[in-house]
Amino acid sequence: MTGFLFEITFWLVAPFWALMVFAPKWSWTHRIASSPLIVVPALVVYTVLVAGHLPELWATMSDPDLGTLREFAGSSWGAAAIWAQVLAWDLLIGVWMFRESRRLDLHPLLMGPLLVFTIIFSPFGFAIFLVIRYACDGPDRATTVVTGQ
């Protein structure tokens, strides 16, 4: 069962990434990407994986230690749970990047490869996007976020 949940997690998030990379201008892509609910399938998998292991999860996360975390990640359910969590968070990051790229009117030929890079190396892809966003965003962005004007 754990192996199946591990495998299915990728396929639950892949369609959303595919929409953002291959159909960024399609109106439904923006509608779908505007909902934080798209991560729910991956989070359901995470919940199923950890439901029977809450004491171990709590012990690992409440008092972090490299050895304990290594043991947690070394278990099949722990590795699959970490995978589901990573895919859910990466999708949230990717969706935010996609939406910001639309706001900034960044070209899909820039964002498509950057999103693919982010799927594989999310911290680096996210960092690159933050630099691009900083370079392309207006200097008065802070006030517009707060005031909406």
Rank of each mutant, 00 (worst) to 15 (best):
P41D: 12
G67Y: 01
A33C: 09
P108A: 11
F124T: 11
S76T: 06
M61P: 06
Y46G: 00
R102S: 04
R133K: 11
V13Y: 09
G74W: 05
A18M: 14
W89V: 11
A81H: 01
G52Q: 12
Q149Y: 09
R70T: 15
L12Q: 00
V86W: 13
V145K: 04
A80T: 04
M97N: 08
L87A: 04
F6C: 01
H107V: 00
V44H: 07
S62H: 12
W89N: 04
R31C: 00
L54G: 00
V13H: 08
H30G: 05
F16D: 00
S27M: 12
Y134C: 01
L130P: 00
I93P: 01
P123M: 07
D90R: 06
T2I: 00
G94H: 04
Y46F: 14
R103Q: 10
D140W: 07
S76I: 02
L87I: 03
G78W: 04
A51Y: 13
D137S: 13
G125T: 11
I119A: 15
R102Y: 03
V116E: 03
T118R: 02
A79S: 10
L49Y: 06
G67V: 05
R141Q: 15
F22R: 11
D65P: 01
T9V: 09
V48R: 11
V50C: 07
F124A: 12
L106E: 03
T2W: 02
F16I: 01
R133W: 07
L12P: 03
L5V: 01
W17Y: 13
D105L: 07
P41L: 15
E56W: 03
Q149V: 14
L114N: 06
R102P: 01
A73Y: 13
A23G: 08
M111G: 03
T29S: 07
L66N: 08
V116Q: 06
A84L: 10
L54T: 10
L91P: 05
G3V: 03
R99Y: 01
F4E: 05
D65H: 06
W11H: 04
V146P: 02
G52T: 11
W28F: 09
F124E: 05
T29M: 10
W26P: 03
T60H: 01
L104V: 02
D137K: 10
R103N: 04
A33V: 11
A42D: 06
A23Y: 15
